[in-house]
Design a protein around this nucleic acid. Structure first.
Length: 424
RNA sequence: GUGGGCGUAGCUCAGUCGGUUAGAGCGCCAGGUUGUGGCCCUGGAGGUCGCCGGUUCAAUUCCGGUCGCUCACCCCA
């Protein structure tokens, strides 16, 4: 009886692990170029941390159980509550704004399907302690540069952005009662995936809006930012929010992202704690689920700690992103190959092989060889199979002369190199 | 949770209108090749044909169930 991995969980064989590492290296490198610091927290947290902080959707899909001490615990389904807790603990002592990132493995209990597993790695980047829109810009810029580092440009991906404060002012202006906003958000969030009739139905039945209010709400989504200003600009609350979003776009443009970002009032995000700007990044063809989602959550820290700090951040998962990159041929398909492969003609050169290999490794080069002395042809076959760039041949003749033959595998050229030059 | 598709070698898949010993390509191992890889040639290992039951002289094949994978729906980090 052979074992299998659990449904929705992945094995990372060397080729797949190389792909994962490629993605994570790009994430880490990008975050560090933006001078963000890496942190991590426990994969297991008190269940309570997620109840009513993350939204019902996430709570329903928690990997939760009771531990041997009788505690209700959950595998983390997202990183933000952990981040909020950690910042709440030591945030007072940290210079503001806090610029942190993490690449946690997250879990959720749900039927696995394309682009959606029970486990994934998610790049989280957050700016905490800065209410200004410049922080929102910084965060979205990191996300887009992460994708850029992986070879995805404006022809491949697009960030659709919105602001819940704008949406709120528009909905209130359209006659939606304040206590029905949540239901309206849920219906709007689904708009781009459903037909107009279904949306209407949701606004009426789920959000409990009257027919004229529903029509007023639907009319909002026919407009771009300028249209919203000219029609609803008389509403001071709307005008202020349009101003803010416009400056958001201006700053993004200054950073060079004008071709990557679009206004989309239907972007709401499912999570309960977003309070301001929200965005999602999609593949341009619209074939896949969202690659990345984020936004501003100014009240979450006060909900899980006694600190009150505004915050903005995003999460980008490796699953959908990996699918897109694989489609575009932007992922490595094999593990890294050795720089050198050492071949010995006879057993007599093995002591030299061991010394030479260690010396080269001491200089940071990767070195492989057959562990036992076998035929020279076999050693070369193995060097080839493992993709070695260069083979160092040690034979009695060369060793006597204090040299080695170095063969470049891709074109078969050989040259003689002094052993001392190789570090042996 | 609902519905569809698929389970044959490590991988991708043929095949069997029910019949003796189940195949290919790739991969792996060995040899051709004891001072030179890729290409080529030869040989080899590797299968309870997902599992359980039924029908039958005979089931990998037909039927029922079950488990698993997968896609879609629901929902959405």
């Amino acid at each position: 009886m052979a074992f299998q991995s659990l449904p929705g969980f992945r094995d990372f064989f060397p080729a797949e692990h190389a792909a994962r590492r490629h993605i994570q290296s790009a994430w880490r490198g990008t975050a560090e170029r933006y001078a963000f610091e890496e942190y991590d927290g426990p994969p297991l947290e008190p269940l309570e941390l997620y109840i009513e902080k993350s939204g019902q959707e996430i709570v329903d899909q928690l990997y939760a159980f009771e531990d041997k001490g009788g505690r209700q615990v959950a595998l983390r389904p997202e990183m933000t509550p952990t981040l909020a807790r950690m910042v709440g603990e030591h945030g007072r002592a940290l210079p503001k704004p806090i610029r942190w990132f993490s690449m946690p493995q997250l879990f959720r209990y749900e039927r696995a399907q394309r682009g959606r597993l029970r486990e994934h790695f998610q790049w989280n980047v957050d700016v905490i302690g800065e209410p200004d829109i410049t922080a929102d810009v910084e965060v979205l810029s990191v996300a887009l540069d992460g994708l850029t580092a992986l070879g995805l440009g404006p022809a491949d991906v697009v960030a659709r952005v919105n602001d819940r404060r704008l949406l709120e002012s528009l909905l209130l202006g359209a006659g939606v009662p304040r206590d029905r906003l949540g239901g309206a958000y849920a219906a709007i969030d689904k708009m781009s995936r459903e037909d107009a009739e279904r949306t209407k139905q949701r606004l009426r039945e789920d959000a409990g809006l009257g027919p004229d209010v529903v029509d007023a709400v639907l009319a909002l989504f026919a407009e771009d930012l300028a249209g919203l200003r000219s029609i609803h600009g008389g509403d001071a609350a709307v005008a202020a929010e349009v101003d803010r979003l416009e400056s958001y776009f201006t700053l993004l443009d200054e950073m060079g992202w004008s071709r990557h970002v679009e206004f989309d009032p239907r972007i709401v995000r499912g999570l309960a704690y977003y309070t301001g700007t929200v965005f999602e990044i999609f593949d341009r063809k619209g074939e896949l689920r969202a690659i990345c989602g984020g936004g501003r959550y100014d009240d979450l820290l006060s909900a899980v700690s006694d600190l009150q700090l505004p915050a903005v951040g995003f999460g980008m998962g490796d699953v959908v992103l990996g699918e897109l990159l694989r489609e575009r041929g932007l992922l490595p398909t094999s593990a890294p190959s050795p720089d050198y492969y050492v071949v010995t003609i006879t057993e007599g050169e093995r002591p030299l092989l061991r010394r030479l290999a260690r010396a080269l490794r001491g200089e940071g080069r990767s070195v492989s060889y057959t562990l036992r002395q076998v035929g020279v042809g076999k050693q070369f076959k193995d060097a080839n199979a493992r993709g070695a760039s260069e083979v160092i041949v040690l034979g009695p003749d060369e060793v006597t002369a204090g040299v080695a033959v170095v063969r470049t595998m891709k074109d078969g050229t050989e040259r003689r190199v002094e052993l001392t030059e190789l570090g042996a």
